[in-house]
Computed example of a mutant assay.
Amino acid sequence: MKKIKVGLLVEEFYDKDLGGFGGYGILAREYIAKYIPNSEIEIEVIIGSNSKKEIKTIERDNTKIHYLPKNWSSKLDVDFIYLNMVKKFFKEQKFDLYLSIEMSKIAYEVMKREKNKKLILWVQDPRPKYDWEEIKSVPMSNEYDSYLNYYSKWEGRIQDLLQKLDREDRLVIISQGEYLKKKAIDLYKLPENKEIKYFPNPVVITENFKIENKKSSVLFLGRLTPVKRPWIYFELAKKFKDYTFYVCGQGTEIDEIIEKYKDVENLKFMGHVSGDEKDRLLKESKILVNTSIHEAIPVSFLEAISYGLKILSCQNPDDITKKNGYFTGTILGEGISELEEFEKGIRNCIENYKEEEILNSIKEIKDKHNLEKFISNMRDLIKNEL
């Protein structure tokens, strides 16, 4: 029996040699490519472009990764040879359908040329204009500039393409969050009654930590960039000197700000953490603090809850923060003027750190973001849509 051949359209694939350390890259490699293939389904990864004028194919853990040539979709006459090369590649590969994590440029370029294949679009973080207006309020952030200079230029074309695929019954949308469904419809200007299935991201749940081993420590997991507003977290550390505040993340955009906090004794800059070190910090910490101006449903929230942490955040996707910690309410701009609300949140999480509630939260994460359920549901989705 011929396997169903799925083309996974992504901009990155998590790999120490290839790069792509973002959440989408991790989702592509550590979950989709790793767990979905079986005797009926095969997954091959297609990445936007490499720096060479050729199609480059490599393998990682038995997964084929195809890098398309640079500027293959350009309208310049000199690049037609590469466009024809890519057209020949897709004709020979004979993918049965495509899966895209969010609507990336590569997904747009491939699907506008496909005449009868379906696209399963997994909505992760759709950002309508009103989300970008909130991001714009953060000083020093260049994310809004990147929206104006890049993303906004693609919006109209992507909307037209997805509307066309929808009319042709070739667009299947799934969403990692219930509240993201309306954002996707607003962003892509799809019919209000467009069916979008709830499809939560999976989380590998640890079973080997004990609540009694928790210490007086707090965790920040994320990029050190203006949009994450880590300076709020740094100020919190100065207010709660009896707690150790770990900073896990990298970034050079706010180096000057970080320098001002290097002498805060209970503030520990850990750099990028993963593996055993990340596991250790999650096991000993009690609170995950998220100060970002914008989030979808961060994997860090789900991981933290599964390790028995409370969440303190000004974001409340699908009521996760309210149910598992303290929601400050929406806080725009620099955020320092609302520091007292975060202080109140720290105290609330400390005073309400109760074993029964923690165990109930872990159980809910296990049920909703179960890996086995994700594997079964994704395989069924692929087979049914084909």
Rank of each mutant, 00 (worst) to 15 (best):
Glu40Leu: 09
Leu27Tyr: 12
Ile41Met: 06
Val6Asp: 04
Phe21Arg: 09
Lys181Trp: 06
Lys228Tyr: 04
Leu332Ala: 10
Glu334Lys: 11
Ser141His: 01
His66Cys: 02
Thr244Ser: 13
Ile55Leu: 00
Pro126Thr: 11
Met140Arg: 14
Leu180Ala: 15
Gly222Ala: 07
Asn348Lys: 13
Phe209Asp: 08
Arg229Pro: 04
Phe269Tyr: 05
Leu76Pro: 01
Ala304Trp: 04
Glu178Trp: 12
Glu114Met: 01
Ile135Val: 15
Lys322Pro: 07
Phe90Thr: 02
Leu9Val: 05
Pro202Lys: 07
Pro191Cys: 06
Tyr307Ala: 07
Asp17Trp: 02
Lys56Pro: 00
Val218Gly: 07
Ser361Trp: 02
Phe13His: 00
Pro226Ser: 05
Glu143Lys: 09
Ile211Ala: 07
Asp318Phe: 11
Leu282Val: 07
Thr291Val: 10
Gly325Pro: 07
Gln124Asn: 15
Asp367Cys: 13
His272Arg: 14
Thr330Lys: 15
Glu92Ile: 05
Ile205Ala: 11
Phe89Ala: 06
Gln176Trp: 06
Leu83Ala: 10
Leu99Lys: 05
Lys344Glu: 12
Pro126Trp: 09
Lys366Phe: 09
Asp279Cys: 08
Ile258Ser: 00
Glu235Ile: 05
Ile382Asp: 06
Leu9Gln: 03
Arg229Asp: 02
Leu236Ser: 09
Phe327Gly: 06
Lys5Arg: 13
Ile158Asp: 01
Glu168Ala: 10
Ala28Ser: 13
Glu340Ala: 13
Leu312Pro: 02
Ser104Arg: 10
Ser216Asp: 15
Arg229Ser: 03
Gly249Glu: 03
Glu355Gln: 12
Ile297Trp: 05
Lys210Tyr: 12
Asn360Arg: 14
Ser73Leu: 03
Ser216Ala: 13
Trp132Met: 15
Trp72Gly: 00
Ile120Trp: 04
Tyr243Leu: 15
Ser217Phe: 11
Ile336Gln: 04
Lys183Pro: 09
Val264Tyr: 01
Phe374Glu: 04
Asn290Asp: 12
Asp160Arg: 12
Ile46Tyr: 00
Ile185His: 10
Ser274Asn: 11
Asp145Val: 13
Leu221Glu: 07
Lys210Ser: 15
Lys53Asp: 15
Ile135Ala: 11
Ala184Asp: 10
Trp231Leu: 04
Lys322Glu: 15
Phe342Leu: 08
Ile173Asp: 05
Gly22Asp: 12
Asn208His: 13
Leu309Arg: 03
Pro317Val: 11
Ile320Arg: 03
Leu9Thr: 04
Ala33Val: 06
Gly251Asp: 02
Lys53Pro: 04
Phe13Val: 00
Leu148Gly: 07
Lys210Phe: 14
Met103Tyr: 15
Asp263Cys: 06
Ile362Leu: 11
Lys260Thr: 08
Phe220Met: 09
Ser216Val: 03
Lys34Pro: 01
Arg167Gly: 08
Leu119Cys: 09
Ser141Ala: 08
Glu109Trp: 02
Ser175Leu: 09
Gly19Leu: 03
Phe301Thr: 09
Ser146Tyr: 14
Ile297Phe: 12
Lys5Ile: 04
Glu259Trp: 00
Ser274Met: 11
Lys164Leu: 09
Lys194Tyr: 05
Ile211Val: 15
Tyr246Asp: 07
Met85Glu: 11
Pro226Arg: 01
Glu109Asp: 14
Tyr188Asp: 08
Ile311Trp: 05
Glu178Val: 14
Gly7Lys: 01
Asn149Leu: 14
Glu134Leu: 14
Met111Glu: 01
Glu284Gln: 14
Leu281Pro: 06
Leu190Lys: 06
Ile254Arg: 00
Lys183Gln: 13
Glu259Ala: 10
Asn213Phe: 11
Leu288Asp: 04
Ile43Ala: 03
Glu259Pro: 00
